[in-house]
Design a protein around this nucleic acid. Structure first.
Lengths: 229, 229
DNA sequence: TGCTGTTATTTTGGATCCAAAAATAGGTTT
DNA sequence: AAACCTATTTTTGGATCCAAAATAACAGCA
């Protein structure tokens, strides 16, 4: 188990994402300390980290409040991920894929291929897809070969709606979601093609476009309908 | 004057950028506390902030060390700014400039126009240009209308070589630098044209290209010669 | 000499304490 | 009823204290 301070960061991130406090609501150090069963010190450290991540912000007055996000912020978070992952993909294509990377990506495509052989999905397929998707993006991000780029993407991913992992699927309508996930898979295939052919500009463009598919699952964030489908 | 903790962040940022500690060198809390004349508490808070900004990193062992940057990291920092400011410019062009924004940009262009009417620059012109350049970029970043994008750019700018303000001019060769700054000015003009005409894609592309001009002054960061001119 | 296990010292992480700043409540005046 | 000033309570920021972890120093041994 990690230090109390690191635990505080992750626990707080979850509490905030789960809506324990309303947007704009102030967090009192003593209250948070009691909830997590630690003293104020690790909480104060955690507040600084969460502030940098963009989940908290200083008020004009005193203390920190949970950051309020608009539908446009959600769109921007996704677009930021698009341009950054696009940058990573372009670099990967231009430097050339290692055999290891190419295999890993191929494996992702094979895995999702078997997933989509059926006509529809069952609930547990969702987590299978989440895993495949996560691996695919990780290869590209790390494949940029730049820690600076990877860090920038990681920072942006702290916004709970911006990460490529944050695709939320409506389990009640698996039939409808099938088409959408299948499209995501096809986009992965196209990106893969561009990467192995060393077409950096095309890989970048495809990754930028691919980012928007996350928005299609953004109903929970109050996106206008026009952006949803 | 701000709180001791905020002072610690800015003071530490400067100390690190000035090379007080070598890259990879460990920072001891008590030592830093003595240097800045405060207790360990604000230092510990500052370390967290600086870690998020990317100037410090946790070692595998214990404590924080100053992050070491490669020439490629410098390139990536600049490219990241390019895609993010490009995103901001595209949004600004697509939503349309306010009269206020258009005036502010026009004023920047007018100011630099008078700067480049002469055949060469004197030393104080450099700070004049730095101010103009800073204002120009600020209008575009804020013009995106998205705090999320502005924050992402601000975070990236914490890398001391990535900010658009970090153009370093060799005062010993003002004659040679003249051409480079003049090119930057011409790029500003092109960006302005694209913005007022509402050509988002072109504005984005021009901003991305414009970012690279910072690299031309990157000698101090050990960039390979091929990237310099 | 080189290696390993043990002890001593340093350094960090968390809790507590205290003072200063800020928010709140209450009462007064207009 | 609204604005203003004051007093009380709350909350934060910084310093200090203590324990645990980690690093460094050291002795014993192959």
């Amino acid at each position: 188990m990690g230090s109390a301070s690191n635990v505080a960061v992750t626990s707080l991130r979850k509490l905030i994402s789960d809506g324990y406090w309303k947007p704009g609501e102030k967090l009192r150090e003593v209250q948070v300390a009691e909830i997590l069963g630690v003293s104020r010190t690790p909480i104060r450290l955690a507040f600084r980290t969460l502030e940098q991540e963009g989940l908290l912000e200083k008020t004009g007055k005193q203390g920190f409040v949970v950051r309020e996000f608009s539908a446009d912020d959600v769109l921007c978070g996704v677009e930021i991920r698009g341009v950054l992952e696009g940058l990573a993909a372009r670099r990967l294509a231009e430097r050339g894929l290692s055999a290891r990377d190419q295999e890993a990506l191929q494996q992702c495509l094979d895995d999702s291929e078997t997933l989509f052989e059926k006509e529809s999905l069952v609930e547990e397929d969702i987590s299978r897809w989440a895993d495949i998707n996560s691996r695919f993006h990780a290869v590209i991000v790390n494949g940029s070969g730049s820690r600076t780029i990877a860090d920038a993407i990681a920072r942006n991913n702290h916004l709970p709606f911006a990460s490529s992992d944050s695709i939320i699927i409506d389990a009640a309508h698996l039939q409808k979601e099938f088409r959408k996930l299948h499209l995501a898979h096809q986009q992965h295939q196209m990106v893969y093609q561009a990467l192995v052919m060393g077409e950096g500009t095309r890989a970048e463009m495809l990754m930028r476009e691919h980012a928007y598919i996350g928005l299609r699952y953004g109903r929970l964030f109050g996106l206008p309908d026009a952006l949803q489908d």
